[in-house]
């Protein structure tokens, strides 16, 4: 892990802030450096496995400065080491570079983050909604969207016996 840290420090200096909690080592990077950091980790540090991409909405989080966070969970498939890369983005147009060019597995994960949080990934080949219906307007995992929705779930005409 110290190698990785040294590598990132050499290349990016203070742009990659290191955080550690339990066994998780996290680097917070700025959105414009994201793709550079990811490709460095993949190609030179050996983190060739993208385990997960997750979005977080920090709207009500204590002492939060930015609205959204996106976390890339990387793993080394040989040594089983893990590293986490976190970027923070803000309204009104949260946009990030797509990691599809590095990992094809990022395809659906980025689509899900887009579907749930509305974070746009530039350069993604097919950025559509994946879980919610095509015409849905809100982003359900944002903190300002209520748990029980806004009534969308009941807006279908019922069938009665005589219909059949």
């Amino acid at each position: 892990m110290s190698n990785t840290q040294q590598l990132l420090a050499d290349r990016f200096g203070d742009f990659a802030i290191r955080e550690e909690f339990r066994d998780n080592v996290r680097f917070v990077v700025s959105p414009d450096r994201l793709l550079d950091v990811l490709s460095l980790l993949k190609n030179e540090a050996g983190f060739d496995f993208l385990a997960d991409i997750t979005g977080i909405d920090y709207l009500h989080y204590p002492n939060a400065t930015d609205r959204y966070g996106v976390v890339y969970c990387l793993a080394n498939s040989e040594t089983a080491e893990r590293v986490y890369v976190k970027v923070l983005v803000n309204d009104p147009e949260p946009t990030l570079e797509s990691a599809y060019s590095l990992w094809k597995g990022a395809d659906w994960m980025e689509r899900e983050v887009f579907d749930m949080f509305g974070i746009v990934f530039d350069g993604h080949p097919d950025l559509r909604r994946i879980l919610m219906p095509e015409g849905f307007a809100a982003f359900p995992l944002r903190k300002d969207y209520p748990l029980r929705g806004r009534g969308e779930r009941h807006n279908f005409e019922p069938n009665i016996r005589a219909d059949g």
Binding site: P133, A137, G151, N155, E157
Partner: peptide, 23 residues
């Protein structure tokens, strides 16, 4: 009891379903 409701114009949003109701 049916829970379909018609929203005010400023509350409306694009959702699937019938365009005369909340959708």
């Amino acid at each position: 009891t049916s829970m379909i409701k018609t929203l005010e114009l400023d509350q409306t949003m694009v959702v699937p379903g019938d365009f005369n109701t909340a959708t």
